[in-house]
Every structure is written in C-alpha cells, then in structure tokens.
Design a binder for these strands. Structure first.
Lengths: 162, 162
DNA sequence: CGCAACATTGAAGCAGATCAAGGCATGTGG
DNA sequence: CCACATGCCTTGATCTGCTTCAATGTTGCG
C-alpha cells in the first residue's frame, strides 16, 4: 500500500506455480529471498499450452480450487486468529511444505525475515519476535540461526488447529 | 471454528458461481440470508460439462484468477486495514456489485446481518455498529432500515482505497 | 401486548501496536 | 585486526484500537 503497509500472500518453494495479476490496476509482486531459478511463461503461451492438452482443464480447475481453499484458510487466519495461533499455524504449515519437498531435517529453516513473516500473518515484527521468544521460554521450540527447532510439535499443531 | 469464531468469505448475488470444498476435511458452508434459487451441479457433472466445451478452460482459468485476486485483496483487508477502512471498503465494494446486477438505487441495501458483516471483515458486531454510527455522525451516510444511504461517496471511496 | 432477534451504546479491559533502546552478527575501510 | 557502520532481531515501556461485558433500544411478529 502507498503508506508502506504490506500483505505477503505466500512463500514459494521449488516447484511452485506463481500466477500473476490478471488485471492491470492491481499491484502484486514477487521478491526473491534466496537464490532462485524460474521458468517464466507469458499469458498467451500459457493459454496456448492449455489448449494443446485436452486433459489439462480438469487439473487446472483442481489446482485453482486448491489455491482458493488455501486463500480462504488464510482469510480465517488473518481475520479470526490470535497472534499465538497465527505464528503456530505458520510454523506447522511451513514445516509441512518443507517435508513435502523433501526437507526432513528437524530444524525448520526460515529463510524469510521476521518482517516477511509479520506481513504474512498480519502482525508486527515485534509481535512475531515476542511470540517466538515466548514459545521458546515455554519449551515448545528453540530458536536457532536461520530457523527454529520444534520440541513440542503436537502442542504447536494444537495451537494451529484450534 | 469449534469455539464459534467464524469467517465469512463472501456474499453471493444472483448469477454468482459458488465453488464448493474440493477436500473432505474442510468445513465450508453457504447460508441463505434471503430467498434463494440455486442451480446445483455435482463435481462429476461439472467436470463432464467442461470436457464437452473446448473453449471453456480459458474462461475457467480467467474466472479462477479473478477469484484469487479478490481473495488476495480480502487478505490485505483483513491483515492490514483498520476497522474504518474495512467498513468503508465493504460498503463501496458491495455497492459496486449491486450496481453490476442492475440495482441502481441510492440506498445500498444490506440484507445481511451486522454479525455477517463483522465476520466478513474480521471485526466484532459492536465495532461494525459503532463505525457505521460514526460515519453517520460525520455525515458520510445515513443508516436506514435494511441498508445505508451514502451521502459522501467519494470520502468513503477514499477510505476504501487508502 | 409481549417476546425474540437484532442493533446500538457505554464502560472497562486487553492483545497487539507503537515507540525506543539495545544486542548481535556481518561487512568494510583504515 | 580493530573501529565503526549496517541490517536484522530482541526486549522493555507505554499506548490505543478494538474487544469484551453489560445494558438498553428497536423492530417485527404471533
């Protein structure tokens, strides 16, 4: 937003598909927080690509439905959850995605900054930091360089589900 | 949510398409707030319907992209806007949709309850009520039975855009 | 009328924001 | 290799916008 307020919609991992803004008057951008390799596709090329494959439409539809479902979960998160629930949700969700791409390490790596996390959760950087520190005090996790290590994953999951 | 917290994702108007939950473990429902006529379609029938029409995929894709864009705007609203901005945004957005379906009356009808509006904006019913009352005190609008009448639409639009 | 559902209003409380200092790495030039 | 800057992150104190709690008002309907 003009005044600096920002909403982060998501964090992409290898293999993810990022759709761009379909309208002109819509400001939406992607920033790299790490080294990135991308495969870029113009809208026309994408449309053409779809037309070539008769079986694709259903998969596209399923994909879109999934995206929309995630978006709705995020709306619930932003609108109705506490800071504690937001941070726990984020950690659990992010860990799940890391596992899906094959990162099974105990430590959850957090390559994004606290500011990025805050803007993703609709919080301030201070609240994110304080919440993580509290989780650490309560022995739910340990904050390490570049990430956190979950000690009590079930408690975190319970917070996230709530 | 189990504890009664609720997130309203949107208000449908005549002609709108409502996609349902693609997954099982996902609770999402639609409530009628008024007399309703629906055309219901099973997922299989829908898939079949798409397959019959070679030109549909592109339109589906465009539709999904639009939905996703709206969802992202809503995330920005929920995560980063004040109560005042939320209510103003809602009024302006709702009016725009009413106009699109041909309702050009000066009074913006609000068939949904304050609770519904609150759950849509991530606020409490009291905050919605107070904000509307304040708007009325500030001569931005008049609260009437079943809706509001905008007196200073440009001011409302400015708040919504912010 | 009298009840029930919804809306408004007021007072008090609190979760999270804001303001303000430090810490703690990493880098850089002398 | 040290002085110093820079970019996060953490921590503390204070503030405030929204929530919560508690009445009260309003509307519609059997």
């Amino acid at each position: 937003m003009p005044d600096g307020r920002r909403q982060v919609f998501g964090f992409a991992l290898p293999g993810d598909f990022l759709g761009t803004a379909p309208s002109d008057r819509y400001s939406f951008s992607a920033d790299a927080i790490d080294a990135v390799t991308v495969c870029r596709l113009s809208r026309e090329a994408f449309t053409h690509f779809i037309e070539q494959r008769p079986h694709f439409p259903i998969r596209i539809n399923a994909f879109a439905a999934r995206e929309l479902m995630l978006a709705q979960e995020q709306m619930l998160l932003l609108g109705r959850r506490t800071a504690e629930e937001k941070v726990a949700s984020f950690l659990i969700g992010w860990r799940e995605r890391l596992v899906q791409i094959g990162d099974e390490r105990q430590t959850i790596t957090l390559p994004m900054s606290r500011q990025d996390i805050a803007d993703y959760l609709g919080l301030t950087i201070e609240t994110v930091s304080r919440t993580l520190t509290r989780f650490e005090r309560e022995k739910m996790l340990i904050i390490v360089a570049g990430g956190v290590r979950l000690l009590d994953a079930s408690r975190a999951a319970a917070m996230a589900a709530a």
